[in-house]
Amino acid sequence: MLLIHCPYCDETLPEAEFAYAGQAHVLRPQDPSAQTDEQWEEFLFIRENPKGPHFERWRHQHGCGRFFNAVRDTVSDKFLTTYRAGAPRPDLASLTESLT
């Protein structure tokens, strides 16, 4: 069971309190009707699925209920950071540097 830091509660808590919510920074377009089928497919289905640092969303389901973002290494399952929804995408280089 992973330990996850909720950036709203500022507490590190067990995974059982959280729900995974897929890749982060997939923005729903302002005007979906103006999207081509290809663009809508991209929004709905195409995912990065990287082996390594992954920008992803979690929800503190059984806590504050907030959705937030995280960077997690999908090889080690270690969280590099978590941050609030709407905050800018953190710089990956600085995150991985702090690891070593």
């Binding site: 729900a19 995974y20 992803e56 999908t74 090889v75 399952d77």
Partner: peptide
């Protein structure tokens, strides 16, 4: 498990 991963580990719960 609920999250994507390449770790082949998986959790106890």
């Amino acid at each position: 498990d609920q999250y994507t991963s390449y770790s082949q580990r998986g959790g106890l719960p």
